[in-house]
């Protein structure tokens, strides 16, 4: 029964009205907890510094401190998320960002909702509900995320141009789908990470369809990949 089920994946597909699939990668508990810990530490340090700074001002400093405590506690996350493309310093550090469920940048309403409901996630103690929700939801949402319709995803980093072996390009001898082209290119790109026997083993799989001897398959695949890449 499970064999027929769709393979598990961490990617979350959002289809836009234009029919374009956006691939989002929701972030799970561990990086989010670390990001939260970083934010907590930053807030703690800021409050400590304020405590010493405002302590010198006496009664006035006490009032000012209360206002700043409120601001830092309730608005730190919201302001950073809305004004900094969904990234608090902790999330920025770990390559995360907050977005709406449909992939659009997070707005005031959603950000306020998810951060005010943080206090539901805190229940009954030490984020127990939030942890349970995050570990049980397929997109790793805590209760605030479910209510606000937001998603914490990994940011896409800029991809580096991969280096392909310098060989004579060869057109593919048979039509290839996009996925198959990617696999051929990936084989050529990732040859540095693979051991030589493993490369030979992988290439030998395609020796028969390519109609070459297994020893020459690797070279042939590299040339086809070069051809697929086109002139550079």
């Amino acid at each position: 029964m499970l064999a027929t089920a769709r393979p598990l994946d961490t990617r979350f597909r959002v289809e836009t009205p234009e029919g374009i699939d956006l691939l989002l990668r929701p972030a799970g508990l561990v990086p989010r907890a670390l990001a939260f810990a970083i934010d907590l530490a930053i807030r703690g340090l800021a409050l400590l510094a304020l405590f010493f700074l405002l302590g010198a001002l006496g009664q006035f400093g006490l009032g000012l401190g209360a206002i700043l405590l409120f601001l830092i506690n309730w608005w730190y996350m919201v302001l950073f998320e809305v004004l900094n493309q969904g990234r608090t310093p902790g999330k920025q550090w770990l390559g995360l960002r907050v977005i709406h469920d449909d992939g659009t940048p997070v707005g005031w309403a959603a950000s306020l909702t998810r951060n005010l409901l943080r206090f539901v996630d805190l229940l009954p103690f030490a984020y127990a509900l939030g942890i349970l929700s995050c570990l049980s939801h397929p997109a790793f949402k805590r209760l605030g995320d479910i209510a606000a319709g937001t998603l914490v995803v990994y940011r896409d980093s800029a991809t580096e141009r991969p280096a392909l072996p310098e060989t004579e390009p060869l057109p593919p001898p048979f039509p290839l789908s996009q996925g198959e082209q990617r696999a051929l290119l990936g084989f050529a790109e990732r040859r540095e990470q693979l051991s030589a026997p493993r490369r030979a083993e992988l290439a030998a799989i395609l020796a028969e369809p390519l109609a070459v001897a297994p020893e020459q398959a690797e070279e042939r695949i590299n040339r086809i990949a070069r051809g697929l890449l086109g002139p550079t």
Partner: peptide, 25 residues
């Protein structure tokens, strides 16, 4: 070919997330 998860190289955090999904199933 029988694998019930989508096999592709991920970054480490995503790999952990996949484990959460696997345990959830």
């Amino acid at each position: 070919t029988d694998a019930s998860v989508a096999i592709r190289p991920r970054n480490a955090w995503e790999a952990i997330d996949l484990g959460v999904l696997l345990a959830r199933r």
